[in-house]
Design a protein around this nucleic acid. Structure first.
Lengths: 337, 337
DNA sequence: TTGAAAGCGCTAACAG
DNA sequence: CTGTTAGCGCTTTCAA
């Protein structure tokens, strides 16, 4: 209201006029074309600065048929476990990598009630590519879209899907290492609180534990499953203890479940690590503040996110990429083992 | 490569041709204009379905001068504490609310090294509005942009900024309630592990504690500050105990610090809640799995996010909104108090 | 190396 | 109520 006219955003045309060149030239300068005379480049840049010009994405994308934006798709069901630092860190990694590029990041929570909405959004030319993360394997249903628009998955497909692209952490090697650490510490009755077997992370971490146990000739019957939540970890620990078998260590498939187990171990009057050593997975912030501090496997989820983003951008721009990229994991020994 | 022609996405024009109407009519149907004859609507919708048409956002936005997308801005410094469920939950709330609208969500990590990049992005007509969240008050530097593009802040401005729009939880009432709960339980030497005084959440939660204590005629000298991390909570608790004054309860400004304090209390051979009752804030997932389970103040961050999104959309669409929206908080009594 | 001109797919007056 | 007609701001041949 009042006198103030809507300050019209400067257009490329205004820049051209001010710099005394054609719109085409301004466009070339903005897009870094190599064949523009230096003095013109300078003139254009000056005009851009003076006008505080910023290109209109919609117009650019309409004309060029590229959107300069990528979507991070999060299946609704997994968004419910958003509390899991997992997602937040991946988003952070993706966002930070993208900040170094010209791509914009869009978040899409894929409604399971209406999966076509997401499909259409992705195939409707709204994004140049997509990142799909989930704990659930089934969500690789998006895999087929990969033929229409570039897609990079976070976490390996549960069933090896030969032509999908993904970045994953080495869950098998990680859990193998964690279990071997317990064995080296002289533990022999090592239980595991595993994650759901229908999620790659759950399946693989159980597998690594199994391998380490088998290689060492130890018994692999002490398994209980949780859903990665602290409460489920506590319940699993309770079931483990209820078996009345000797247990001198527990490898939990994630820190949240490990911490859930802490409470139960204390309730039973047992001490960590004297009676039962505990090793978690993920290196949650809370593990280091727990008493005793939790030994765990560290893997950088921000790195995972950044790597996914980098890979996708490479694909979008037509570069060569491998189907699988596996990130390393490392053991962090603290007081609980 | 090979024979496959790039399957050209169907355009509005193709739909018009197939339905035997003009492009304008198709546009009207797509945008739900009330003045189109039912039979034409049907014809158009049939053509849309047959062609699997999906509107091109760029074209639409270029022509209509609206982007149908909003940005969630996260200052870089606060993105480092991304591990804090706070952000993840807000994002979730925002994403879920937006999923019920036609708006798209973009995540922008505002580089502090190059703040203008974000400013330009926001003012450059790339989004219809923005949501800004941060724990830090200083970040209301974006407040001025509010005159150019609608902005809703998460958390109140530290210095009351009379014309910015925000949604916040009632930190003062919440911490007052938490402290009164401790007082009702008969505790009289109640310490607080406060958050940074330069963050509204830190400042307000300390204030609520102070009010409750003062009203009850209790001493308010037992204060130590942390930075909301578990480690800082542990250190603050250590300092509190080092004062060698009687302490029979602790109100921590968030659960992560409360849990950090747990470890230290145990180290000192004290028991919770017998020797020291503990109340946290935020209702983190881990608080309920701790031993004993943590009494805390619950506030729905997803609701915060959803409310922010809703408010912004209303603003973007020209509806009336209040400057401040305050969300309720509730006490959850568990074993630690 | 630069400019002119033709759209990209859609919306929004304005007629009719 | 429906169609016609201009563009929205930018990229991109094609000539010059």
């Amino acid at each position: 209201m009042g006198v103030k006219a809507a300050a019209q955003a400067p257009t490329l045309e205004m820049v051209a006029a001010r710099a005394g060149v054609s719109r085409a030239t301004v466009s070339r300068v903005v897009n870094g074309s190599p064949k523009v005379k230096p003095d013109l480049i300078a003139a254009v840049n000056r005009a851009i600065a003076e006008l505080n010009y910023v290109p209109n994405r919609a117009a650019r994308s309409l004309a060029s048929r590229r959107t300069e934006s990528i979507a991070l798709v999060i299946p609704e069901s997994t968004s419910r476990v958003f509390t899991d630092p997992f997602f937040a860190l991946i988003i952070q990694g993706v966002a930070m990598h993208l900040a170094t590029t010209d791509y914009t990041l869009g978040i899409v929570v894929a409604s399971e009630a209406n999966p076509d909405k997401t499909r259409r959004f992705l195939t409707g030319g709204n994004v140049d590519g997509a990142l799909v993360v989930s704990h659930h394997s089934g969500d690789h249903s998006y895999a087929r879209l990969g033929h229409t628009v570039p897609i990079v998955f976070g976490g390996r497909p549960l069933h090896d899907d030969h032509d999908s692209y993904y970045v994953d952490v080495d869950n098998i090697a990680g859990s193998l290492t964690a279990t071997q650490h317990l064995i080296e510490r002289g533990r022999t009755h090592i239980a595991t609180i595993a994650g759901p077997a229908d999620m790659p992370a759950g399946f693989d971490r159980e597998l690594g534990w199994r391998r380490a146990m088998t290689e060492a000739g130890l018994d692999t019957s002490l398994v209980e499953w949780g859903d990665f939540s602290p409460a489920s970890g506590a319940m699993a620990m309770r079931r483990l203890l209820a078996r009345k078998l000797p247990i001198d260590a527990v490898f939990a498939a994630n820190d949240q479940m490990a911490l859930g187990a802490y409470a139960v171990i204390a309730e039973h009057g047992l001490s960590i690590p004297n009676d039962i050593a505990v090793v978690g997975y993920d290196d949650d912030a809370l593990g280091s503040a727990a008493a005793p501090a939790l030994t765990t496997m560290h893997q950088s989820m921000t790195e995972l996110g950044a790597t996914m983003a980098e890979k996708l951008v490479t694909m979008v721009e037509g570069g060569p990429v491998d189907h699988a990229t596996i990130l390393e994991t490392r053991l962090i020994v603290r007081g609980s083992s």
